[in-house]
Design a protein around this nucleic acid. Structure first.
Lengths: 272, 272
DNA sequence: CTAAACAATTGATAAATGTCAATTCTATAC
DNA sequence: GTATAGAATTGACATTTATCAATTGTTTAG
């Protein structure tokens, strides 16, 4: 067995049993002690400000696989930060199918798309055991009035979200199946890296079906692409366990801009 | 000749020569007198607050067709509101092509995707003679500290942008060529309607090439779809002049959710 | 541990879309 | 007004991807 960290495991490793241990019943770990602290908090927020921020954040019991964080059309009250595990967001389509709109890894946000209309345009479902921080939006908005840095941070994060969505549109709009899957894997890889996980070896928590749905392809096509990538020595794929073997070639195939590259530095992921 | 209002003409019509006329050299019309006033300003901003807001907004000379508002990679200083005319935004791709990421009609915003990194990830080019309001972001951010309503408005608008992008991703990800084009036309139609233009008859300021590029299709496919839609009595298309003849059928073809429907009320378009 | 449900893969075929090429239409420059 | 370049349309053909069907592998519930 080689070393195979799921998002779950990594989070656990980072926070070995200390004073307060993450347990399924009472999750009450202050922001200061959270394993995602460095990723999650704006650097500039410290001391008393940090206390303020911490005081508004609610920690919910972890979600089990397939449990919903919120449903389509439900009232928007909070935004969420993934602490460990992962979720997918999806919308219902006219024909009763679901359409996957995104995957959310540790340190990433959910719910920003709901601010405008005051209700969630999509549902969020856990892909594995997952814990999130809940940030009541009214409180957050109030706090931003006191803390200009926080406001700036929030605007930056929303802007990043817009930017990322547009990146993805580039992908979905134009490319072939192999370009899409390649770019998808690189995107996941980069996001893992930004959170301190391995960028060359990781577990995909989502099914082939979810990936296909997300990329606008048939499951069979995705499966065939995985096979082909493997034959071509680009990756090693054993079900959900993925090893990136030839990143450069994958970049070429995906037709990615440089901007989607590792040039992204830590700054862009900070939050609340 | 039937009545054919371009975005240009409509804007002119709404603001017949008054005290201050829009001329190509010195555009200095205060927000209060702007034809987009009702669309553009949060209702709640009045009196002294309006003056403040107005004071930070700069008005540039109109752009001619094919002129750039900003280039890829240029420093982010301001966000922009389209007053009349229209623009497209696009990114360069690896193979030197451009990839169209969006079209921007009167009352709509540009530049929100640049806040995060401090530089524009895409370029913006005028599709016709176009005038915009420039809102220096630092000033705006400062103002939001004084005016909570404005802050709320800004967050809502950014959220809407995220929401809209995800709508589009749904489209690009999954659908057939006819679904894409149909949804595209309905989207344009709805946006015209929200700005007070006709939703059944309008001019497309962008070329078939731009549309195809945007939708991730070949020009030829788009052209054939236009032809087929016409044969099927869905639309009447004479080059850029479009008449929607069977909106219901088009909705069905596009596989759109109800949420993209006319249910969108005026609230969602207000801005700065 | 076993059965049953589900997920993933693979093959054969059909349908959709892209590519190449030719033609017509439109706008622009002189 | 005419010439020219660009945009849009149309047809023939090649390629990609979806669909249908069968098989294998994996997880879950009892």
């Amino acid at each position: 067995m080689r070393q195979q960290n799921t998002m779950q495991q990594k989070t656990q490793l980072n926070k070995p049993r200390q004073k307060k241990v993450l347990d399924l019943h009472s999750v009450k770990v202050a922001c200061k002690e959270c394993s995602l602290h460095q990723l999650c908090l704006p650097r500039s927020i410290v001391g008393a400000d940090l206390e303020k921020l911490d005081s508004i954040i609610e920690r919910k019991r972890p979600l089990k696989r397939n449990e919903h964080l919120f449903q389509v059309g439900s009232a928007f009250n909070s935004i969420y930060v993934v602490r460990s595990g992962s979720l997918k967001t999806y919308s219902p389509t006219v024909d009763g199918q679901e359409q996957v709109t995104g995957f959310h890894l540790p340190g990433e946000l959910l719910g920003l798309d709901a601010i405008g209309k005051g209700k969630h345009p999509c549902a969020a479902k856990a892909l594995e055991t997952t814990s999130v921080c809940e940030v009541p939006f009214e409180h957050l908005e109030g706090l931003t009035q006191e803390l200009p840095t926080l406001q700036h941070q929030l605007l930056r994060l929303m802007s990043k979200e817009i930017f990322d969505d547009q990146e993805l549109m580039l992908l979905l709009g134009k490319k072939t199946a192999e370009a899409r899957l390649s770019a998808f894997l690189l995107s996941i890889s980069l996001r893992f890296k930004q959170r301190g996980f391995s960028s060359t070896e990781f577990y995909l928590s989502m099914s082939r079906n979810d990936i296909a749905n997300y990329l606008g392809l048939a499951v069979e096509t995705v499966s065939r692409m995985f096979t082909r990538f493997q034959e071509d020595g680009l990756i090693k794929a054993e079900r959900k366990h993925i090893v990136i073997k030839n990143r450069e070639m994958m970049k070429k195939i995906s037709g990615m801009n440089e901007c989607c590259d590792e040039t992204d530095d830590a700054e862009s992921q900070l939050f609340v």
